[in-house]
Design a protein around this nucleic acid. Structure first.
Length: 264
DNA sequence: ATGGCCATCATGGATGGA
């Protein structure tokens, strides 16, 4: 079973890339962030024609999350983790016995900005919800665009990013609190020696960031120990960041009970 | 270099992203 997380940076602006990518990567579960479309405009047929069912939680212009799954989805939850959140940033479903939580964490703009306070409040709610999910027991998987680089080494330039949004201690403390709840950063655990550009998941469009290796590792899988035991690899699809009008994030795939294709 | 790019809504330029 393979599960992919991908900040698509507008689904409709990525329609020229998604069909081929889906056919080639063929994940069982695809968690999308920043779909940027209302539910009535979601291209369901694209997924349904390939054997997926979809659970969507969108809004106009901004944010928006969706799960496409070849396996049945039950217990679909929309609008988590923050009660009354006007922004569409969280969706969850139980798939193959796993509680899959797909998140688009608040960016925060800059330390001290009102959006940064919203980010911390949002993360606090996520930590609380995670504690409740953990207490309920069972396999739990959080994935998505966390907008947090967990360590200085998850940036291309630690000095440049020191203390800034995505890297600030309060954000990292909340990421640590998720780990303290019994979740594991699957990429870091499975690939402890992978650092630098081949461990990054996002690159700025500006200044040829991708070509120069100026990226960050901000898209994550946080999983319970039982799922880590089943994890063979976490693969960042850098090819999808190349070519015509890519998203600025690469898709990241967790391979459960299944070896990834050999690198070509 | 107070930047560079991209998507949205809208049709110019502001806003958000990270």
């Amino acid at each position: 079973m393979r599960i992919t997380t991908w900040n698509i940076n507008s689904l409709r602006a990525r329609l020229h890339r998604v069909p081929d990518w889906l056919d080639q990567a063929a994940p069982d579960v695809l968690c999308l962030q920043e779909t940027k479309c209302q539910d009535k405009e979601f291209p369901r047929e694209l997924f349904e024609a390939r054997g997926y069912q979809v659970a969507i939680y969108g809004q106009k212009t901004y944010n928006g999350v969706a799960i496409a799954s070849k396996l049945p989805m039950t217990d679909i939850e929309l609008g988590l983790p923050l009660q009354g959140d006007p922004e569409a940033r969280g969706i969850a479903a139980t798939i193959g016995g796993i509680k899959v939580v797909n998140l688009y964490v608040v960016n925060g703009k800059a330390v001290g900005d009102a959006k940064y306070a919203y980010k911390l409040r949002w993360l606090d709610a996520l930590c609380d919800r995670t504690d409740a999910w953990r207490a309920a027991g069972g396999p739990l998987l959080l994935c998505g665009d966390f907008n947090i680089a967990p360590t200085d080494e998850d940036t291309w330039d630690a000095d440049l990013w020191f203390g800034k949004v995505l890297c600030s201690p309060p954000e990292r403390a909340r990421f640590q609190r998720l780990l303290d709840s019994g979740l594991v950063d699957a990429f870091r655990k499975k690939h402890p020696d992978a650092w630098g550009r081949y461990a990054h998941t996002w690159w700025d469009y500006r200044g040829g960031g991708f070509q120069r290796g100026f990226g960050m590792r901000i898209d994550h899988f946080l999983v319970t120990a039982d799922l880590l035991d089943r994890s063979r690899a976490v693969v960042i699809d850098r090819e999808a960041r190349k070519g015509e009008k890519p998203s600025d994030h690469a898709p990241v795939t967790l391979f459960l009970d299944e070896d990834p294709p050999a690198a070509s």
